[in-house]
Amino acid sequence: MSTFNGLPAHVLFVHFIVVLAPLTAVLAIVCAVWPAARERLVWLVLALSLVTAVLTPLTTEAGEWLQHRVARSPLVDTHVELGDTMIFFSGALVIATALLTLQHVRAGRGKALSTMLSAAIAVFVVLAGVGTFVQVYRIGDSGAKATWSEKPLTSVANGESDAE
């Protein structure tokens, strides 16, 4: 999908990622360190991580479509390079929430994981969550700079250029 109601789809998808990825990361961290929250939220957090993982490649694909329709610049290139890394962070978040879910299911069956393994899962979830949060910020910041820099991007399709 390249456009939606005349707007580049990337602009719309980005808003989902900017909200869902950090929200999922924070909720995953809460579930990792607070068992009562895990009991109530683990399935929601797993679902949110899966939605984020599905939306991430859609967002980057829509961004690549948009990249070919704006003037080239180092700021856009930086944003594209950072955006391409988001799939790794979304994947880590899915793995982290799957581990939390496994921990929750085993505890519900009376087969709790060892303290060492539970601690390792918590550390992984915190690292994946913080990494996701930071990377969403970095990607968003680079996109904002590319879009709203002193010399805004102009459309190549309209015959305009930023090389004036």
Rank of each mutant, 00 (worst) to 15 (best):
S142C: 03
C31R: 04
Y137F: 15
V54F: 10
I139M: 05
V130G: 04
G6E: 06
R106Q: 14
T147Q: 03
G140W: 06
A146E: 02
V76N: 02
H15K: 09
V45F: 00
A32T: 09
R138N: 10
R40A: 13
A28P: 07
E164G: 15
I29P: 02
L20M: 11
P22Q: 08
A32Y: 04
F88I: 07
L46Q: 05
A28Q: 06
G108S: 06
K145L: 11
G63E: 03
V19K: 01
A112F: 06
A9L: 15
L44G: 06
P74V: 03
A21D: 03
S49F: 04
A36C: 00
W43D: 08
D77F: 02
G63N: 05
V130Y: 01
L82N: 06
P152K: 12
V33I: 14
K145R: 15
E81H: 10
G63V: 03
E164I: 09
I95V: 15
L117K: 10
F16Y: 13
V125R: 09
R38I: 01
G129R: 07
I121K: 10
L127R: 11
D162N: 15
T85W: 02
A21N: 07
G91Q: 02
P22E: 04
L93E: 03
H15Y: 07
W43N: 10
R69Q: 14
P57T: 04
T56Y: 02
A107N: 11
S161C: 05
P8F: 13
L75M: 06
F89M: 00
N5M: 15
A96R: 04
A47V: 14
K111Y: 08
I139L: 03
V156F: 01
H68W: 01
G6A: 10
G91V: 07
L55H: 07
A21Y: 04
G63Y: 08
V14N: 14
A112V: 14
V136H: 01
P35E: 12
G143K: 05
T3G: 00
L23Y: 07
F13N: 14
A157Q: 14
T85V: 02
L48G: 09
L7Q: 14
T147R: 07
Y137Q: 10
V136P: 00
C31A: 09
A21G: 01
P57Y: 02
G108D: 08
V94W: 06
S73A: 11
F124D: 04
G131P: 10
L153C: 05
L46A: 13
